[in-house]
């Protein structure tokens, strides 16, 4: 993957796969010379969405795979996350009140709030029994 190109991989529905995700993203970061901030923000958005999917997406005990497809087209990075969990559109969730006071502050929905703020575009589709989340972000080079 140079300035244009793509990479795909699969993650099992297990929290330990966060380490794999981080490792894969490091590779993408190096190939594209992403700034530390940009790589951090990509990592964080994918972590939040992946953690959400494996926490709420599956009602059985079987192993599932979450597919991640990352492509770069000059200055835009596109990430597509696909899972076969229950239909769930995270974008629809009511965002938390920000800013808030300590007493009012709730943590529910915070992950998605971060994703929406860190990415330039987030979209959701339910396609043939699959949740498809697409993220877009301008590439910031180091």
């Amino acid at each position: 993957m140079s300035t244009t190109g793509s990479v795909s991989f699969e993650l099992r529905n297990n929290l330990s796969e966060l380490a794999t995700l981080c490792e894969k993203m490091e590779g993408v970061g190096q190939t594209l010379s992403l700034s530390r901030r940009c790589l951090f923000e990509m990592n964080l958005a994918l972590d939040e969405l992946f953690t959400n999917i494996i926490s709420y997406g599956f009602r059985d005990q079987s192993e599932h795979f979450i597919r991640v497809h990352i492509s770069a087209d000059h200055d835009v990075l596109t990430v597509v996350l696909e899972d076969d969990g229950i239909a769930f559109n995270p974008i629809d969730r009511i965002p938390p009140e920000v800013p808030c006071t300590l007493d009012e502050c709730k943590v529910g929905g915070l992950g998605i709030h971060l994703v929406k703020n860190l990415m330039d575009e987030v979209s959701y589709e339910r396609r043939a029994g699959t949740n498809v989340l697409t993220l877009k972000k301008s590439i910031e080079k180091s």
């Binding site: 901030r37 300590l102 502050c105 709030h113």
Partner: peptide, 16 residues
């Protein structure tokens, strides 16, 4: 780190 601080700011935690 500045990008860690940014997460606190987006979450609104820097207000309290």
């Amino acid at each position: 780190q500045d990008y860690v601080k940014e997460v606190f700011e987006i979450a609104g935690f820097d207000s309290f």
